[in-house]
Amino acid sequence: MAEQVNVFVENRPGRLAAVTRALADRGVNIRAVVVQDHGDYGLLKILVTDPEAACEALAAHGFAAKRKPILAVYVDDRPGGFARLAEVFGTGAVNLLNAYGFVVNSGRTAVCCVEVSDPDAARQAAEGGGFRVLPDGELYSL
């Protein structure tokens, strides 16, 4: 299963820079990033080319970081592309905890990443609805 990296960061200037610099120095590329604000702290959710290397680099800089499984699904990069996937999840009673996406090929292909409580059920629902789920290797090497 594909993974993103969740990083605990204090909510103050410079922290995002410190995290991303640590990844850059290790040669880890960032595909997508989500910042979740929780008042005194935030959670950075980062999709990278090498989650394991990212975690090592962050740990070496003293960050609390953890790999979390996600489901990455190809959607069409056009109006209704994401809506169709959301409908499939809705019909399959899959509850999303978090979702984000990025474009791979403008006007053609995008990738939607979702965090769900039951990844297997989500995968079945997506594949049953005709969507293609990315194997982790394919996701990281996009």
């Binding site: 969740n6 979740q36 929780h38 959670l43 609390a64 979390k68």
Partner: peptide
């Protein structure tokens, strides 16, 4: 402090 060894990656656990 949030210790790297016990960080689960989830807000729920922190809260």
């Amino acid at each position: 402090e949030v210790l790297p060894g016990v960080f689960t990656g989830e807000v729920k656990a922190l809260e």
